[in-house]
Design a protein around this nucleic acid. Structure first.
Lengths: 336, 336
DNA sequence: GTGAAAGCGCTAACAT
DNA sequence: ATGTTAGCGCTTTCAC
């Protein structure tokens, strides 16, 4: 069923059908109804490809994320999808994995679909050196690039993020103020936000003149979602006489791993060990005691990101960078 | 930059460029190289819309799921995406929400993109009466429909699922055999698999001649992910003198809610209350004790689904229905 | 207000 | 092995 079939059945030209389809006001109501009836009767839907060819925009946004099964990313994608949808945009999702070359390919692939803009979800799309980020510069020449939870200063690139540095700084200070100085910092990513968080932690330790804190900063290599493995890792560590009475993790699952470790060691949380997670995911309320965690206001972020994008697409001047402060949600794994 | 520009610069016809682009073997290597060089030099990417118009297939599969932030669905989507990708297919994801009309719209929308097949993730796409499922019949006339975790017998509709009936039957029997008869069955969906699970539970109760079990079958109306609310719900219930020493839930979060309830009441899990969840999600290892749960072999399912789809697309005759048995993963919330 | 006709960029059948 | 050309289904001038 094509526009020709419909026009024939309705006794009008294809131009008129097209006008009805696109809501032009230059169609007599009677004609419109006649055409609409046929369209509905035959359940006709215009071919998106043919349509996209003529059109400049097809009201579609490309969303790239490394792993849609990650709790944080999945939620972000969901919010974005909903927000875009309610603004009349469709979204095209690609899960790229964490490999740089594959990410590049996907970016080009999604670009060839004539998307109006691209959202990169998660800070893992931004590398630390210029060369790594070249592919973003290239693409930004064609469509606006929106970064969620990352920042990159370049024309036509817009960033929306949580102030992870300050959030982590404050979370750390809370723990220090509670008298815990031997804090283990557990992280698993050197992404943009990963670096910021670590920076915040270090700054807090410096500000409190904690001696020798670097030895308690640990990069966890494995899959953080395997919380038992995280616990194993910490057990091995404690045998090496590295003592700690607090754990701050860059992600909730790592924090849960620390809680598992504590349980195995017969340590009480929070009396013997305080734990703070990050992301305020649903995991925080699954464990006992419930996990104190930093909320990075994901929903606020996604909302703002889409608003900025819509503005940009309408040619308005929009802020290049929107930063929201995070918030420590105090639950049962901390005494303060 | 179009195929015409490239052909001009390379001094060949557009047909030759097209052949190079599509990897035809009827191009002399020298010609191919000449064209490729130009393509790379100008960083040319063919227009996907123009391409899609000519082509019959664009190697794209539409994936519909109600809510990509649901732990189970997110994981399913992820596996599917990876599997399709490694077989040379792209995927187009839409999150539809749970409203029937919106789901229908999305189906049509995704169809208009000329996808080669459509995967409906989660049993909430299949209703209990014929009329609800009409939209699936309509679409199946055009492309194969793959159902994950649901079943619907109709031409060109293929189902891949876990034998939820038997899995739930066996899980229930395990608990009954352990001497617990007053089991609370907590569920929140009357979807295809929801109905199967409940059926399995009932059958087990019948088989053990448990009296009066219907009064302990409870439909939870709220959002199961809000586990505190689930606990509240159960507290209200226990005040109404409904006693139970076991909880079987149709989803892990509901089971976690039950564990929260137990803790508030000062009940020990599993000594005073046994709990079984469903889906074997990552939540099962977040709580204490860890949650016994039914594993529905999601990865096996998604693998099989994609294999079946690929077969169908190649015109092979494939099984209309693939059923895998689930498995009870015993952890700390049960004594058996 | 409506129709005729010229593209949009590509694929594929056909011709050479 | 390569070129020519007719569509694919739609949008959008430009006439009427």
């Amino acid at each position: 069923m094509t526009i020709y079939d419909i026009s024939k059945k309705a006794g009008v030209s294809i131009a008129t059908v097209s006008r009805v389809l696109n809501g032009s006001d230059k169609v007599r109501p009677a004609t419109r109804k006649k055409v609409m009836d046929i369209i509905e009767k035959y359940d006709y839907t215009p071919n998106a490809f043919a349509r996209g060819m003529g059109l400049h925009s097809v009201q579609t946004i490309g969303i790239l994320c490394a792993d849609s099964s990650d709790l944080f990313l999945a939620k972000a994608v969901y919010y974005l999808e909903q927000e875009l949808q309610s603004n009349g945009y469709e979204s095209l999702l690609c899960c790229t994995g964490y490999n740089l070359d594959i990410k590049k390919n996907y970016l080009n692939l999604i670009l060839s679909k004539k998307v109006d803009g691209i959202i990169l979800v998660g800070s893992n799309f931004i590398g630390t050196n210029e060369e790594e980020n070249q592919y973003i510069k290239d693409v930004s020449a064609q469509v606006p690039i929106m970064l969620l939870n990352a920042s990159f200063d370049y024309p036509n690139v817009y960033s929306t993020l949580c102030d992870d540095y300050t959030s982590m700084f404050e979370a750390t200070v809370s723990m220090l103020d509670a008298g815990i100085e031997d804090i283990l910092y557990l992280y698993n990513s050197n992404s943009y936000s990963g670096v910021k968080k670590l920076g915040g932690f270090r700054a807090a330790m410096e500000a409190h003149s904690v001696p020798d804190y670097e030895k308690r900063i640990l990069f966890y290599e494995g899959d953080p979602q395997q919380m038992d493995d995280v616990a194993n890792y910490l057990e091995r560590l404690s045998k090496k006489k590295l003592s700690f009475h607090g754990v701050i993790a860059s992600e909730d699952p790592l924090a849960i791993g620390a809680m598992k470790y504590a349980r195995r060691q017969g340590l009480c949380v929070p009396e013997d060990l305080s734990v703070i997670g990050y992301n305020n995911s649903m995991l925080t309320t699954c464990c006992t005691p419930e996990l104190t965690s930093v909320d990075n206001r994901l929903e606020t972020q996604t909302h703002q990101l889409v608003q900025t994008l819509l503005g940009v697409l309408q040619g308005e001047e929009m802020p290049k960078k929107s930063i929201f402060s995070g918030k420590l949600i105090k639950r049962g794994t901390t005494l303060f």
